[in-house]
Computed example of a mutant assay.
Amino acid sequence: PRDWLFPGDIPGQPITRFAVARACNLARQRSGISKPITPHLLRHAFATHLLESGTDVRRIQLLMGHRSLATTSRYLKVATSTVCATASPFDLLPHLEPVQPPPSPPEYF
């Protein structure tokens, strides 16, 4: 493509990281959120939410552009409670009622 997905103030140039940080700060102020919001925190939250929704770590690595899986695995520490709460595939199997043996015939037969 010839045009930038996020064009900057200067024609033909992309948006700067400072402009993105400024937009995050302005959105934070307007929303009344007291904690800091940075592009990096949004990126981190994106990866963590992917992991928590069940996306495999290799796919997250590709989406994040990490060269090393070790870098991506840092998100595993953040989402430990979610990872530990993951259901076993056996938990997803239907629970059938135990089969009752047929009643014994009366003894006089």
Rank of each mutant, 00 (worst) to 15 (best):
P14L: 00
N25V: 00
P7R: 09
S53R: 05
R22W: 14
S31T: 02
G54D: 12
F109Y: 13
V20I: 11
D9C: 03
V78F: 07
A23G: 06
P102E: 08
T82Y: 01
S73I: 02
D3P: 00
V83H: 08
S34E: 11
R28I: 07
Y75C: 02
R30H: 08
E107G: 09
H49R: 14
L51T: 05
L41V: 03
F109A: 14
T48G: 03
A70E: 06
A21T: 15
L41T: 06
L96K: 14
H66E: 00
W4R: 06
S104R: 15
A87K: 12
P98Y: 10
R67C: 03
S88M: 08
V99M: 06
A23D: 15
Q61E: 09
N25P: 00
I10K: 15
T48I: 02
P89Y: 08
A27H: 11
L42W: 02
T55N: 09
G8Q: 06
V57Y: 05
T16W: 06
G12K: 08
S53C: 07
S104W: 07
A19N: 07
E97N: 08
T80Q: 14
Y75F: 06
R17N: 15
L50T: 05
Q61C: 05
E97Q: 04
I15Q: 04
H95C: 03
S73A: 06
L63G: 08
D3K: 10
R67H: 12
V99L: 15
D91W: 05
P89Q: 09
L69I: 13
M64E: 01
L62D: 12
T38H: 10
S104C: 08
V20H: 03
R17H: 07
R74W: 05
A21G: 13
R67A: 09
K35G: 01
H66A: 02
G54R: 12
C24K: 12
S53Y: 05
R67K: 12
A45M: 03
T82L: 02
L76M: 04
F90I: 12
V78G: 03
P103V: 10
P1T: 09
P36M: 09
T86S: 15
S34V: 05
I37Y: 00
L51N: 11
H40P: 00
Q29P: 00
C24R: 14
R17D: 06
K77Q: 14
F18E: 02
I33F: 14
P7S: 10
S68R: 05
G12S: 07
T80E: 15
I33Y: 12
Y108T: 11
R43N: 11
S53Q: 10
F18H: 13
S53W: 07
A87I: 01
L51H: 00
